[in-house]
Simulated assay, not measured.
Amino acid sequence: MTAPFPFSAIVGQTDMKQAMILTAVDPGIGGVLVFGDRGTGKSTAVRALAALLPPIRAVESCPVNAPTPADCPEWAELGSQKIVSRATPVIDLPLGATEDRVVGALDIERALTRGEKAFEPGLLARANRGYLYIDEVNLLDDHIVDLLLDVAQSGENVVEREGLSIRHPARFVLVGSGNPEEGELRPQLLDRFGLSVDVRSPNDVAERVEVIKRRDAFENNHTAFMAQYTAQDTVIRDAILAARERLAEITTPDAILEDCATLCIALGSDGLRGELTLLRGARALAAYQGDGTVGRDHLRAIAPTALSHRLRRDPLDEAGSGTRVRRILEDVLE
């Protein structure tokens, strides 16, 4: 099986790569929404980051990738209890997926052939401790998106149907991508994603040529290409792991909390998810960069991705949401 494209080999798309890295440092930030042109490396970045992360240790026969037999749900019938290493899961959720396929349902075959009531796990079980990727998330049924966001926030999947009462851990990073020309997400759903990034096809000839060269080398000289970027991917992985260890030790001055609140008030964002995501994102960025204290530079770096999708529409302002955030940043954090 061919290894995914190296994360460090992705050309440009700085904001998207930063958002992916921050969710790897602190999955509690929430999901990442990536809107933009087709063919800009959205799905490539997700798979590349998951491949870059160290493998997880899981019970071989556990359907939810539990780290020990004791952590596996009672309803799961364990065959082998051997602890094995496996790559960080990246599960694709197809647009036509039903709710049963997503959350799990009664195992019909077993019920008919053996007369037993048993649970058949869904995609959320397989995504536990990994990534759940939805391409064209703006075309997915709203009730499925609502369900996914609720589970992603709680970290637990609860199924109450057909006489079943099932719970299992479902801690994953939700990554949604889409093309805004094909439809938009409702504001209530946008607000539930932690970070949002707009990606565009590069307009610079040299940059596009570099993309072509790297992709061609990946496909036609795979071994040499992977060896070229292995060291760079290792540096990123080590920085992510170090940031996870450092995260709990990061200090946040009260002045930074006041900046978060002032910024969100100035932007007119509803609720408090904006402040909380901005704080967690800035703290994760500080940990990744090796800083011990959250500062205004961290807020400036994370604010556009944490807040741009939470703004109310202003028909009199033609500037994009990211531009509006940067404009308010200059006024608030002068």
Rank of each mutant, 00 (worst) to 15 (best):
P4V: 05
V158W: 09
F172H: 06
E109R: 05
V90P: 08
A266Y: 02
S201Y: 02
R192N: 06
R57K: 15
Q153H: 13
L247F: 07
P89G: 04
A118R: 13
R192T: 09
R327C: 07
A97Y: 03
N221K: 09
R86A: 01
S201V: 14
G163C: 12
G39P: 08
R324S: 12
E60L: 10
G96A: 08
T223W: 08
R57T: 15
D297P: 05
L174G: 03
E184I: 14
G274T: 12
A48M: 12
S165P: 00
D107M: 01
R86T: 14
N220M: 10
L311E: 04
A87H: 09
D314G: 01
L174H: 08
A19C: 07
R237Q: 15
E219F: 05
I236H: 05
R129E: 13
L140V: 15
A306Y: 00
L276R: 12
L78M: 09
V294T: 14
R246V: 12
A48C: 11
V199M: 03
D254K: 02
T252H: 02
R186F: 06
N65P: 11
R171W: 04
R171V: 11
F7E: 09
V235K: 10
K117N: 05
S85T: 11
L53N: 14
K17A: 10
G130E: 14
D204G: 00
E245K: 11
R244E: 13
R327G: 10
C62F: 08
Q81R: 09
P169E: 12
V325S: 05
S154K: 15
L124E: 06
P73H: 06
H143E: 13
R186V: 10
N179L: 08
I29E: 01
R280M: 11
C264K: 03
A282Q: 11
E207K: 02
R244C: 04
N221V: 08
T262W: 00
T234R: 10
G271P: 02
E77I: 06
G176F: 01
R110Y: 00
R38Q: 08
A50I: 05
A242T: 14
E210M: 06
G122M: 03
A286V: 09
L299C: 11
I240C: 09
T305R: 12
V173H: 00
P253A: 00
A76K: 00
H298N: 14
L124A: 09
G292F: 03
S85D: 14
A261F: 10
P6Q: 05
N138D: 06
G104T: 10
L106H: 00
V197C: 02
F35E: 15
I10C: 03
A127V: 12
G155I: 08
D15Y: 00
E120T: 04
V158M: 10
L93E: 07
